[in-house]
Design a binder for these strands. Structure first.
Lengths: 235, 235
DNA sequence: CTGCTGCATTATCAAATTGTTACCAAAAAC
DNA sequence: GTTTTTGGTAACAATTTGATAATGCAGCAG
């Protein structure tokens, strides 16, 4: 298995794993412990609620099919309690279990993962779920790259302490590219995500905006991938 | 209808709709845009392949009966190209069209939906299909061989830590060969999978690209099998 | 209402890069 | 030794992007 440790940011979290199959619990538990999470486990819905109360997990991995109290019922009860209103819950489901999935989302699961479980996928989803709940705190949402800061709340960009005034489209474009540094965004995708799906604009529009951004910031943070798109990259 | 909107933004996806009837395209398109998907459309198989190449959809809704190039033929060609090996494809079929359905599934469709299309059913199937193929949006898609790394998300190749800039075709060609290390790709096959079936290029074109790749990387990762084709191999 | 002002878009052309072909030499196959 | 196939090189064609300026438009002050 590839070693992904280096990518782990330091945001540990407490995770409660609920499944009636000991093998699965053990498997997931082993995997997540290795990534620095604190783990607690439960066999069924009743135990899950009891443990959740004093473990206070940040996230719960919840099997749907369980004895005693199934996942659907469990999540309903959890969501009723204020202390679990903001707890991330991810369902574990068998592939065929489509009806339950929909039911689960309606009720308040944040995501679900199909069995058999792939560790990498699991890790990614967990990170995503945890992150989603953390950033609710109404602080400024900002992206920082060394000397560059993009503040999405204030709508400003500063580079080496100087504030740079970007027009709306320029700002949105830069924000998009910077949201996934290194990743190449296809021109087409940029169009849809910045301009919207219904707007039709000419070919050169993106270029011109890119050029203005480059010019205003001064250094080239945006790399052209000819025939493909653009990507944001600190040098 | 239950309101699931809040969950949709978390699972964005790019969908290509292919049908020769504008009304159907419009109808589906309208429905899916409302759910937060990015949409592109095509009228026939040829356009579909072209658009797919630069839109890189996560899922393709493909009508079977179309002028120019029908759905069966289209899916065959798409599945040949490495970048669409893992793309979800759902057939749109007329109710009576049972033979095509079976054919389609055999060839590599993931699901099919009978016309007339019911939005709710469509939405559910799409979610299911996307989930099955869902790539880690946070994790780069990459191929690694010792000191060589091909990063499809960033569109970069690094060898011993140095970034090597490959042009689009070079990158695609290398990606194809590297997707199955050791396996020999026939020249013909390479043409079809990198250039597509409709493009006609001369005999020497492949050679030249191979040569450029070898030159840029520095060492010979690509082995010539004379009279047959090429294969990728770490020494 | 009129005339600013700044932004978004388009048009146009130049420049750079990429993709393809032609041609011949070298290598391998027969 | 002859034929076939591929490599090397350079030229050419095609595509893509950059630069610049101009247009149109919305908001706004007077």
């Amino acid at each position: 298995m590839p070693d992904l440790e280096e990518h782990m940011e330091v945001l540990p979290g407490k995770i409660l794993i609920v499944d009636d199959e000991p093998d699965i619990v053990e498997f997931i538990s082993y995997n997540l412990k290795g990534k620095g999470y604190l783990i607690s486990t439960a066999r069924d819905g009743i135990e899950a609620i009891r443990k959740a109360k004093d473990f206070r997990p940040d996230l719960i991995l919840l099997d749907i099919m369980m004895p005693n109290k199934d996942g659907i019922q469990t999540i309903k009860e959890l969501r009723l309690m204020p202390e679990f209103e903001e707890t991330a819950i991810i369902f574990l489901t068998a592939l065929s279990d489509e009806k339950s999935e929909i039911e689960g989302l309606k009720i308040g699961a944040d995501d679900y993962i199909a069995k058999p479980i792939k560790p990498e996928l699991l890790a990614t989803r967990i990170r995503t779920a945890l992150r989603r709940f953390r950033k609710d705190d109404d602080q400024d949402q900002k992206l920082t790259f060394g000397e560059l800061e993009i503040n999405k709340t204030k709508f400003t960009v500063t580079y080496k302490g100087n504030e740079i005034i970007l027009a709306k489209k320029e700002f949105e474009l830069l924000s998009l590219l910077a949201s996934k540094p290194g990743r190449v965004f296809l021109r087409n995708e940029i169009l849809q995500r910045v301009w919207g799906t219904d707007v039709i604009v000419g070919d050169r529009t993106i270029d011109v905006h890119i050029r203005k951004i480059r010019q205003k910031i001064g250094i080239d943070l945006i790399t052209t991938v000819k025939g493909v798109g653009y990507k944001f990259e600190m040098v």
